[in-house]
Write a protein that binds this DNA or RNA. Structure first.
Length: 442
RNA sequence: CGGAGCGUAGCGCAGCCCGGUAGCGCACUACACUGGGGGUGUAGGGGUCGUGGGUUCGAAUCCCGCCGCUCCGACCA
């Protein structure tokens, strides 16, 4: 992509409404534009990152054996009356009437609809287990939306639902989700710590939230500092292996880590004092086991081996896909702008042509760009007629991992300058060596 | 939902107290010079002053209503 043809409305001054760094940087980098309170348009750069994050979530869900699907944003109130949540959910649910005066709502979550799909087609225990998920826009009419995409009213969420015959089987699904979430967040360069949490209106017995530590987080958290030493890494996991998944859950949840909702001072006091930490966190995911809370009232039954109908055991699991952009930026930025982890960076590298119109610079830049395209790096070519300072500032702000600088000085020496956004490491290399370095670092 | 505040050019703001028909910086357009960290000069374009009403000879400015947005709190998969 050529920057001169891209829609990238950079803002130089800080927007006054943006209090936290991720919101400020997303606005300044031209990623989002607010449309009304808590509702945003995703401009090309923001949309590109959103899609990269979404793709990682899809890949990891399918790796764990979960099936993607898509349900509507507008739902009839009838199903929600069946579960009892039409009245329970309160003002946060956006309710509308259609032209026939029927009660409709914009989905804040989809337990009811998914349960209805399940019960319409599944009648035998032999068809279990089933886990399906979607990545779809949700709406929750927050009293006070804030912090940009971190607490929007409209937001993009992965929500998954498992259906199992027994509690044990459903708990395996729970553990499997925990494992896949650990891998998902790590792939985005985030450390998300599973913490025992409160179930809220979803209801249920077991639930963990995944928290990314950040000063601007909305949740207060208490944990044993040793949990931050745990990394999932590149483990080979068999997601059908009950013991293996349970082992990971035990490894990652046996130390003290709780949100303020479930914090227990007495238990916390047992953590060695030098490892007691009180901090703030951003919730990027949550997993629930809630048994038959929905299958009972909605009659989602299957026939067991003995021929008798039993309600299925269920859980649901969410990842705040749009919120993740904010969380990643909170975790990875500096005073000049965003520093994207390579896995979610909107472009793999930016080629900066220092002197547009100069024949040699233009030719070298185009050549560098072509080589990066051929290497699959999805580069951005800054071929704008701005001053050098503005070009560097833009490159820093949008935060792509590599800056490849083409200018007359370097060309005289037969070299380009390669700069790494995160480390600041600069080196002069031949064009081929620079491209190889970028490919190797990706 | 309680409390506080803001709405004037794309963005950030001044002007309002004390009424006389709108200004600054950035951005933008043209040209020239430039170019290794938001460069310089010259010349330009762009505003129903959120909205409706009231007071007044006259309202961005004073009064009332409404709408929108932000912040603090409470609330929140």
């Amino acid at each position: 992509m050529r920057l001169s043809k891209y829609f990238l409305p950079i803002i130089k001054e800080n927007p006054k409404e943006a209090e936290i760094v991720s919101h400020r940087l997303m606005l300044r980098a031209g990623m989002i534009k607010q449309s009304s309170a808590g509702i945003y348009s995703w401009l090309p750069l923001g949309f590109k990152v959103l899609q990269k994050i979404e793709n990682i979530v899809h890949e990891e869900q399918q790796r764990a054996g979960h099936m993607p699907m898509l349900m509507p944003t507008m739902q009839s109130a009838d199903l929600w009356r069946e579960s009892g949540r039409y009245d329970d959910y309160g003002e946060e649910m956006l309710r509308v009437k259609d032209r026939m005066d029927r009660d409709m709502l914009y989905t804040p979550t989809a337990e009811e609809l998914m349960t209805d799909i399940f019960r319409s087609h599944v009648t035998s225990y032999k068809d279990l287990p089933i886990t399906m998920y979607q990545i779809q826009w949700k709406f929750r009419d927050e009293r006070r939306p804030r912090f940009g995409v971190m607490r929007g009213r409209e937001f993009y969420m992965k929500d998954g639902y498992n259906f199992d015959l027994t509690k044990e089987a459903a708990l395996h699904a729970y553990n499997r989700h925990l494992v896949s979430y650990l891998r998902t967040f790590e792939r985005m360069g985030l450390q998300a710590i599973p913490m025992r949490a409160d179930s809220g209106p979803i209801g249920g017995e077991d639930t963990h939230e995944f928290l990314v530590l950040a000063e601007t987080g909305e949740s207060e958290v208490f944990y044993d500092a040793s949990v931050t030493d745990l990394t999932f890494g590149d483990r080979d996991i068999d997601y059908d292996n009950v013991e293996q998944c349970a082992g990971v859950l035990k490894e990652f949840t046996s130390r003290y880590a709780r949100t303020d909702e479930t914090h227990d001072e007495a238990l916390f006091a047992q953590v060695p004092i030098e490892r007691q930490r009180k901090a703030r966190g951003i919730e990027v995911g949550q997993i629930f086991y809630f048994g038959t809370k929905y299958s009972d009232p909605m009659k989602a039954l299957v026939q067991g081996p003995d021929g008798k109908p039993v309600p299925v055991h269920m859980g649901s699991h969410g990842i705040g896909v749009s919120r993740l952009l904010g969380a990643i930026i909170e975790a990875s930025h500096d005073e000049n702008g965003i520093i994207w982890p390579a896995s979610v960076a909107p472009f793999g590298a930016v080629v900066i042509n220092m002197r547009v119109g100069d024949a040699a610079c233009d030719a070298w830049s185009q050549n560098a760009y072509n080589m990066l395209v051929k290497a699959g790096m999805d580069p951005l070519l800054d071929d704008t007629d701005k001053g050098a300072g503005a070009k560097f500032a833009t490159a820093d702000l949008i935060g792509v991992p590599w800056q490849l600088v083409v200018g007359p000085r370097g060309i005289q020496a037969g070299e380009v300058e390669l700069k790494h956004r995160k480390t600041g490491e600069k080196q002069s290399l031949s064009l081929e060596a620079a491209v190889n370095r970028i490919v190797a670092g990706a």
